[in-house]
Design a protein around this nucleic acid. Structure first.
Length: 912
RNA sequence: GGGCGGUUAGCUCAGUGGUAGAGCACUACGUUGACAUCGUAGGGGUCACAAGUUCGAACCUUGUACCGCCCA
């Protein structure tokens, strides 16, 4: 006997373990079947499961379980990525907490060992969390972007090295000195995408740069409204900056070539305060006449725009910051002419001191308070500095071309389609991809330098040495590769590439990538580029972009806002099935998900409802019949539920195939709750309790069958409760057929029986309307009333007699009788097409009965009038499709007949 | 500045041209040997606004307003 309710906390771990122990997640290996593969977007090895993961992996698991049941040879490839900065950060922090040496004093090898130890002990917690969610990944193939520490020859490592070397040989990787986003905290370059542009309160300092050589000019003076009222003579030019300390590295001042105010100054010089350097005033369209003073200081070594301006003007960038964002010392400081008291100052200290110096020299014109956009490292939360360094770059522009073409040609499709635009927009404006990072945790760059600084890029040190010649002393590049460089290879590196393996043959390219939009740039684009370059094929046919999970108020969840919901807490409280089904029901295309606890609770209730339906089946000996022959089913209610079931199967299948998860989940919810539980189980109760053994047997069989098929259809969304019920119901099943997750997906052929549907829908309408009438009249819930049908006609009378038990039970009727004349002392109503009289005697509110009829009559009058008007419109009749016109005509007929009967009923109430 | 999306019941959202829907919340009533994590019934909407196309618009077009997000 089933318990009163499902206990997810007990059942879920047990079921997951059973699946895993039996190897249920491995591909079937059936090579005659179509292969279907998904690679998981590898979560950070430092990560913990958040709502985004929960959604992302639920949807993947729905697809995977669905296709597995459809008989495909299915692989869901799991794994984690090594998350260069994040992991290094975690381990460094841990070292500090434990009072150990920092990484620099312990040395590179020892530190990297320490990171591996951390990874093995506490990394990958998220894997266990994915299991709690029910993810049916093939864990025997779990991969890691850094490969296997104990196997230096592992393919994940070799893949990265091979790709780097080959791209270098093709000229698609090169070394260059450019500005990068420099994180002074981690002392590494980071990508644009790891930089958060945040709007913060800041200042514009308006600085006066004195003109050199005694030059003066007339500058317009404006009044409060901005009108020019006067001219004044100036011996300085004003520049505005939010970073005054960078002036130490200024190489010029730019004005717009067509700005009349400064036309005479172009080619003149200013004498840079503090450092005393003479720098030119140049014309460049970058200077915006409407912004600030219209003149802008140029610091090529510390600003991306200035870098370009400086290049155009032929300036040599002057670097004034070191790797920790302190003012330089030594040769570089000498070159820039930086006074001793500024050297070695931290950047914000230097800023303060520069401003003070300008103030003291009466060169500080104004401090404007305003919001400024400032770049922050998304991991370090410190202000990022544009900084000149030598880095390795991938020629992304060249590699993007085939990746753009592949989507244009439809080889890879985005769903929803409009994300293509985002992809194209980014790909078409792609910048060189800086792939080197000044970290220790990651794939070491396979480049060696001789003493003259010549680089040798090779698969191994020995090869590099061979290339350089025996006399050269080589040193390997200190840097590692960007984590995304290795995850870009994920769809094929996880399948054994560069070796030619059966898995690679079978599971590459993958079927679908499931991800959120924010990773299109990070990852999708890069996988496209790398797969096309090295495999000659797109990595996946479909890219399904799902929503973000927001809180109830529609805000992004974040730890700092404190509005984050923990999926594991929700799983603890309501079960993984409830969370998954909630995600599925809300995963409509192109819309974000606002998650609330209430929603999850509602879906937990849905699981309980299903559980109790199974309990009902158990109590009534509705076993597990396996396949049944629809042709032999006789009773209308059973034929009706089979047609509803098959329609549901078709809808669920279509929904998942089209990535319309909400439609699939919605169809299941509606079928199981509103059709199966609310009606079918109620309608069959008299049959199950009745004396007709044949009907009873048939009903038991159909009920059991429908329940089992429902479990199959629901399984991809709610794997645990369905598997548990499948197992608990196994007793009646002919043979042990194993796990539900390995059953065949139901057929999508829809079984229809219009006559049965009409009959059952009549019963349902009858009951609904009688209940509504009783409620409106204020009939006490427990009171049984006699019902009389007046002039109902043979078909209706037959139906009423056939379904007498059900009608009596569900509409609380004393009995049902037929008559030709309206009985006295009864309240009459029109139910369906039938005048019906409920003998309610004095227990009802006759006023309410009249009101009810008046209301309905008024509504009918309105509907009839407006439809008549429509039909009298010649244009409607001539232009609208014939079936629509016909439909409206039929409506009029039906409504008019109903109105006549209502009028009679209303008249009957006059005397009461 | 460029792009994308949204605006439908108190809330969260379905609804791609033909009688406005669901879940939650709310109100009333609870009886039936699956289920109170439940059942039955009910109230509640100028589909943001304006103009247009159409026999007919929540849906198509244009514009406006407001709200998100992405990119620069």
């Amino acid at each position: 006997m089933l318990d009163q309710r499902f206990d997810p906390a007990e059942a879920e771990p047990r079921l997951y373990k059973a699946w895993e122990d039996q190897g249920c997640f491995k591909p079937s290996g059936d090579t005659s079947a179509q292969a279907y593969s998904i690679v998981i977007p590898p979560p950070n090895v430092t990560g913990v499961l958040h709502m985004g993961h929960a959604l992302n992996n639920t949807l993947q698991d729905v697809l995977i379980r669905f296709e597995r049941m459809r008989g495909k040879n299915v692989l869901w490839q799991p794994g984690t990525d090594h998350a260069g900065i994040a992991t290094q950060m975690v381990v460094e922090r841990k070292l500090a907490q434990d009072g150990n040496q920092d990484r620099r004093s312990m040395g590179r090898d020892a530190f990297v060992d320490r990171v591996w130890e951390w990874k093995e002990e506490s990394g990958g917690a998220i894997v266990g969390q994915l299991k709690r969610l029910g993810a049916s990944c093939d864990w025997s193939k779990e991969a890691f972007t850094m490969g296997d520490r104990n196997d230096p020859d592992n393919s994940m490592m070799r893949a990265v090295t091979k790709v780097f070397v080959e791209l270098y040989k093709k000229g698609l990787i090169y070394r260059d000195k450019r500005l990068v986003n420099w994180d002074p905290h981690f002392q590494t370059a980071i990508s644009d995408l790891e930089v958060d542009q945040r709007e913060v309160p800041g200042h514009y300092w308006h600085l006066r740069y004195p003109l050199a050589d005694g030059v003066t000019y007339m500058h317009p003076v404006k009044d409060e409204d901005g009108n020019v009222v006067d001219q004044e003579m100036r011996d300085y030019i004003v520049v505005a900056t939010s970073r005054p300390e960078t002036m130490l590295g200024d190489t010029g001042v730019a004005v717009h070539p067509e700005d009349p105010r400064y036309a005479g100054l172009i080619g003149k010089f200013v004498e840079l305060p503090i450092v005393g350097r003479r720098i030119p005033i140049i014309a460049d369209e970058y200077a915006d006449p409407d912004k600030g003073s219209g003149a802008v200081k140029i610091t090529p070594a510390h600003d991306f725009n200035d870098f370009e301006v400086g290049k155009r003007a032929g300036h040599t960038p002057l670097n004034i910051l070191n790797a920790t964002a302190h003012i330089v010392d030594g040769g570089e400081a000498d070159e820039a002419g930086i006074p001793a008291e500024y050297r070695g100052l931290e950047r914000f200290e230097a800023r303060k001191k520069v401003v003070e110096a300008f103030e003291a020299a009466e060169l500080l014109q104004e401090i404007e308070n305003l919001k400024i956009e400032q770049p922050f490292g998304d991991r370090s939360n410190v202000v990022i500095e544009p900084w000149m360094t030598d880095q390795w770059y991938v020629d992304a522009k060249t590699m993007a071309e085939p990746a753009i073409a592949a989507v244009k040609d439809g080889k890879t499709k985005f769903i929803p389609e409009n994300w293509e635009k985002t992809y194209f927009n980014w790909m078409e404006n792609i910048q060189p991809w800086c792939v080197s990072r000044q970290l220790w945790w990651g794939h070491r760059i396979p480049a060696w330098y001789d003493e003259d600084g010549n680089a040798y890029v090779a698969l191994s040190e020995a090869e590099a040495q061979a290339e350089a010649g025996p006399d050269k002393k080589l040193v390997q590049d200190e840097d590692v590769l960007d984590t995304w460089f290795s995850s870009a290879l994920w769809p094929f590196s996880t399948q054994g590439w560069p070796d030619k393996t059966p898995d690679l043959d079978t599971f590459f390219p993958t079927a679908t990538l499931v991800t959120a939009f924010d990773i299109i740039f990070f990852w999708v684009a890069r996988m496209m580029m790398m797969s096309l370059e090295f495999m000659g094929e797109v990595p996946f046919k479909d890219v399904y972009i799902h929503a973000l999970v927001l809180d109830e108020k529609g805000q992004k969840m974040s730890k700092s806002k404190g509005n984050a919901m923990d999926p594991l807490e929700l799983i603890d409280e309501y079960g993984a099935d409830a969370l998954r089904f909630t995600m599925g029901r809300m995963a409509g295309q192109g819309r974000n998900i606002r998650l609330s606890k209430q929603a999850v609770e509602g879906n937990r209730n849905f699981a309980t409802k299903l559980w109790n339906a199974a309990r009902f089946a158990e109590m009534n000996e509705c076993g597990a019949p396996g396949e049944i022959d629809f042709g032999k089913i006789e009773s209308p209610v059973n034929r009706w539920i089979l047609s509803e079931l098959t329609q549901c199967a078709a809808d669920v299948t279509k929904g998942i195939e089209d990535y319309k998860f909400n439609e699939a989940a919605g169809a299941l919810y509606k079928f199981i709750w509103n059709t199966l539980c609310d009606w079918y189980l109620e309608l069959i109760k008299p049959l199950l309790a009745g004396m007709d053994d044949a009907a009873k047997q048939e009903t038991r069989m159909v009920c059991g069958y429908v329940l089992d098929e429902s479990l199959k259809l629901l399984h991809p969304f709610m794997p645990f409760v369905t598997e548990e019920l499948w197992d608990r119901r196994a007793e009646g099943r002919a043979a042990d057929k194993g796990f539900l997750m390995h059953q065949s997906w139901p057929s999508i052929e829809v079984f229809t029986d219009e006559a049965a549907s009409n009959e059952i829908n009549w019963v349902i309408d009858m009951i609904t309307e009688l209940r509504s009438l009783r409620n409106d009249l204020g009939v006490p819930a427990g009171t049984k009333l006699p019902l009389t049908l007046v002039n109902a006609g043979a078909e209706i009378e037959n139906r009423a007699m056939t379904h007498e038990d059900v009608l009596k039970r569900l509409a609380r009727l004393e009995d049902i009788s037929m008559t030709d004349t309206t009985p006295d002392g009864a309240v009459t109503a029109v139910i369906g097409e039938t005048m019906s009289a409920l003998s309610v005697a004095d227990i009802v509110d006759i006023d309410e009965a009249r009101k009810r009829l008046d209301k309905e009559l008024a509504q009918l009058d309105k509907d009839i009038t407006s439809t008549e008007k429509k039909l009298s419109n010649e244009k409607f009749v001539s232009r609208a499709p014939a079936e629509i016109v016909e439909e409206n005509r039929e409506r009029i007929v039906d409504w008019t007949a109903r109105r006549e009967k209502l009028k009679v009923a209303r008249k009957g109430l006059e005397g009461l």
